[in-house]
Amino acid sequence: MSEPTNPVQLFSEMLGSPLGELISSVGQGVGDAQAALDQGALEQTLEIYDLSKDDEKTDAELKLLKLIREIGYQPTFYTIPETEVEAQISLSLDLKSEQASPIGGTPLSKFKVNATPLNAGNMNRFGLQANAMAKLKFKIVPVPPPQNIVDIRYVPDLVGPISPTDPSPKTWNETTKELLDNLGFTVLFKTQEGDLITDETLVEGLAIFSQTPDAGTIANTANVPLELTFQDLHKVPDLSTLNWNSETEEIIEDLGFTYAFKTPEGDAIIDETLVEGLLIGSQSPLAGSIANASNTPIEIVFEDLHKVPTLIGTYWSSEEEEIIENLGFTYQLFDADSLETITFEEANGYLVQDQSLASGTFAYTGDTINVFVNTNDM
């Protein structure tokens, strides 16, 4: 076989890989070494804060782990601060592509630079006369690691039974709070509908219904809050502009609330037919607040419904008149014997013998109470 006479072909046969690949291979080696160091430190961090393995540890190990978690201990992260490379190499040119010149004449060629480390074997095999001698020197400097990398944690399981031997549901209490504080998580409380709960006292002792992120996943405590939802907590709906009907009732019951009816004076209304179609005047708890549907009924007040006062046995006067008018009722005075209407002056000071509407029943604003006065009683 004849020796090649083309200089480019000769250099290509004699020398090794492209210069860029040589540098990148060194960088890859440094990167692999750094990755191994990082992996070791990360595995140590996750091992310390992996609560799912606590059952496998002895009491002494758990005591030490609790102390380590409380002080916020973090394993040391080792880095390769800088790598400096200096090598003697031979350079060669390799024809990469060739195309015709737009102005004619000699074709235009593109070359790539190849590099071969100088060692005894290469020098004896190829000789130096066909190689371009060079000294290659470069540095590999690491960039800063991602922020808060030491804050990654396994997300603990906060939903479901406390343990295989204790089927009680996990609740929000001092133990749960201490656990998450030690792990470094911030916590957001929410209703199932996604409404934020800002009053922590509302969730005290309640079973945790769900959590985000899921248990067992890895999260960065510096920027990923742990969201906990509670099944019985809901935002109280606004009923103030609604009339009582089946649709209003459905709104309340869909959220799990019960309800109770009251007059503005606080008297309980038992007969629901009395409030059918009435405009709701006010409510408690207030609309938009968070309440526990399992133990907090919504008290609905109807401004136009009142308990009829007891007038029988009293002596008619301006005080009785004021009681009636303050409740929004009107009245009509009658002589108890003749059943004829009489004036205020004619009834004033006399015993009220009977009334209609009956005392203790409920009537609407504007209804009239018939008052029967015994004008013969002195």
Rank of each mutant, 00 (worst) to 15 (best):
I269E: 06
E70L: 04
A215S: 11
F111R: 12
Q283A: 02
I149N: 10
I80G: 08
L65S: 01
I298A: 03
D59H: 02
T45I: 14
N148D: 00
Y49T: 07
E303L: 10
E200I: 04
Q99W: 15
E321H: 10
D267E: 14
T58R: 01
N223E: 09
T116D: 06
E346K: 12
G184Y: 05
D377C: 06
D377N: 13
I324N: 10
Q44M: 15
Y154R: 05
Q129C: 08
L136M: 05
D32S: 14
L233S: 08
P213F: 09
A36R: 14
G104S: 07
E319T: 11
L42H: 09
I149H: 11
L351V: 07
I68P: 11
D377P: 04
P144E: 01
I298N: 02
E21Q: 10
N223A: 12
F362C: 00
I162S: 01
W244S: 02
N122K: 15
L19G: 01
S289L: 10
A215L: 02
D181T: 06
K262T: 03
E247W: 09
A41L: 10
A215T: 07
G127H: 03
N295Y: 09
F334K: 12
E56T: 12
T241V: 06
Q283T: 01
D59C: 01
A130Q: 10
L37C: 03
P161M: 01
V301E: 06
P297H: 01
S318R: 06
D54Q: 06
K96M: 15
T171S: 09
E325I: 05
F138N: 04
L274T: 05
M14S: 05
T314N: 11
A222E: 00
S294E: 10
A115H: 09
A215D: 06
K177A: 10
S284F: 15
L188V: 04
G104M: 08
G29K: 12
E82C: 15
G313Q: 01
T310P: 12
I252M: 05
